[in-house]
Design a protein around this nucleic acid. Sequence first.
DNA 1: GTAGGGTTAG
Length: 862
Amino acid sequence: MLTTLSEKHSMAALCRIRRPHLLFSNSFKQLLNLWAHNNTLIQTPFTKHNLSPFSSTPTCQKPGNFLPPISSDDSRIVDRLVYIFTKCRETSKSQELEELGSNLTPCIVEFVLRKLKSWRIAQLFFNWASNQDGYRHNCHTFNLMAEWLSGARQIDSLRVLVNDVVKFQCYFTPRALGFFIRCLGNQGLVKEANELFDQMKKLGLCVPNSFTYNCLLDAISKAGDVGLIELRLKEMHNYGWQLDKYAFTPALQCYCNAGKFENALVVFNEMHEKGLVDAHVVSILLISFSKWGKVDKAFELVERIEDLNITLNEKTCFVLIHGFVREGRTDKALQLLNKMKNMGFVLDISVYGVLIEELSRNKEIEKAMQLYEDMNISGVHPDIKILSDLISCVRDERDMIRIVEERYESLDLKARMLLYNSVLKGLINNDSTDKAYHLLYASTGLDSGGDFDEDNLFNMKELARPNTVSFEIVIDGLCRVGRLEMALSLYRDMEHIGCKHSVLLYNNLIDSLSRSGRLNECYELLNEMKQSEFQPTHYTYNSIFGCLCRQGDDAGALAMVREMRLHGHQPWIKYYTLLMQKLCKDGQAVKASNFLADMVQEGFLPDVVGYSAVIDGLVKIKQLDEALNLFRGICARGYCPDVVAYNIMINGLCKAKRVLEAQNFLDEMMDKGLIPSVVTYNSLIDGWCKNGDIDRAIVYVTRMTEKEREPNVITYTTLIDGLCNAGKPSDAIRLLVKMEANGCSPNRITFMALISGLCKCGKPDDALIYLQEMERKDMRPDPSIYIVLIDAFIKNMTPNKACDLLQKVVHEESLQDLNSKSRPILKEAILSLSADPRTSSNVKILLEEGHLTALCNVCEIG
DNA sequence: GTAGGGTTAG
């Protein structure tokens, strides 16, 4: 039975089912009625001007279009700051930085943010600026930072930035707040955008105008939150504001995104009455219809639009077909195409082109070929692009040959070359790599050393003399399927026919060699490149760098970094993160940490992910305080740790039984505006469980469900383990039932935790039931689980059951690799069972039949 | 022509 109050909380929390709820239930129709009686609405004339598909989104001026003039002194400061933050990472400049910091103004910061070239550096600079005495960011600097982060999809950092706007009480102009909100909306941070909007209003930091509202509506519409957009529209209405195209359009978009077509149509009609409909508005509706498979509705609308004297011209249709294709709905695009034909439109080559291109890309060859026949019939001549698209995707070589033969005569030399190369591409795409290889050789006149069945591709070899691109295609294809030797032989033979190499060729070969770990050959090719007219690019160096990182060669990687710097190339972060992982997995986190320090010294800034990997590595080798130092160190240098980085620290502290400190970290991340994830809560729950405080663990379960973070299988497993360790086996069993009821299936780890937990509580009979359930579910427990059970039966004074299980598992091969902890327990068990008169005879039989021999060896029983 | 790589349960 559940006894404590907190346990009741836990069950309530675990069992709660969450449903999204609407914030506002009035129908939009009612709202529209309301507006209809309002005479203040603007009647925007339906002019040609607002027909542009781009005119319906509020144009947002970049915050810095009104940059104030800057004095020459300030300009010098800007240049120094840009220089220091991009070029020079030495600490010796800290003196200068301090001086520059004391003269900082928002205007200077704006100029610097605009001149920096990466969001990472911009963020380091921004955070450095925040910490300067007497300096405060203004809305423009915040906006520039928001623009950087939004463009780089840095969601967590954006959340922190939102938090800072409020924390630093920064005033925003209505326009500036609109801009900020759009940055949030573009990254799906709708909830954050709404909260910020309200808070700014409440704190008097901004008086939103209709532009601000329109930006907010735009953000909400992306999420399709109908209730929320209605609420905001009503607010605007209550202010007595005129609702313009920029308010109506997001409302329309919102209903479309939410799949509420009836409402969308009401808005559309209203817009039409007010003369606000333009091509963009029409296409929102049409494309949504198509997205939801409601093509008939789309056609209805197409026809209705004509009735309404809005003509769908060819261009609009083309835009529509493009739109459908972009939504991946070539089927619907084809239907519309037929409709257009029936409506008497003249289909031009570009409509065919976009469709054939997409169909080819999706390997819908039959449809593409059908269109090709269609073109032939209507007398539209396919251009070389269409032919190439077709040839490079046809599955049947006969089609390939037919298309080439039909067109060959009419083509000039250049077009024949393109056609020939698309034949090679087609063969490669069809996995006929061999044929492509032999065809290429046949065309060069060189011997490929194989027997090339020429009969059906015979004519192809005369089509053109291979050029560099031909070799690039085939060599790339060979590399992709791992036939490096063939690729290399083609590459070597190129010079024999006087065909030039290329950067792409070198890069592909070096990349493939790197992936095969053939480092020496990589260096050979690299040197060859350096002496040729094709200079290595960052891709070349990074391929080799990646190989060194994969091999965990930190010294080699560092040498490569230095060479890259010499040539002005950037090492790719993903590769050195790989190196960090590799080193950390081998317990070499300290080496990894040093590598990052070296990178900084070389002027390359690792990102939070790389540091996180190292911090986790330090945690894993129990150097927790080192990990803490590194974490604090990067914070001090202006990095913005994200949720994962915090999770790593929280997990480390929990594992070291420093749960209170972990809790402080949770508070800190929330103060910064970060949203803890399931992982965060799981770590803390585990931390409290392992500290023998199941009640506090359950508090976190309650908190996580309150924050709409659904417990997952790890949460439940952690708690089941914790409940058993707290001597509450029946609660653990109840939790197992609950988790399934909540739609979360237990996995083998859950069952194993429960089985060993029940054994610890002296309930091997209950445990056995779950072992059987595992078997029913085809889940194989770890071998140690059997030992735990056998041991528990013996301790429970039921040696017969222990012996039964022993007899059953004696054949399990997995018992051979029993872990060292279980071995002495098994040994004890066997000795005990053979000494017990109730079981000794059975054990004896097992011994005589030789079944136990292997196990005895494992346990070193003589 | 490259952008996802780092975190939780027995």
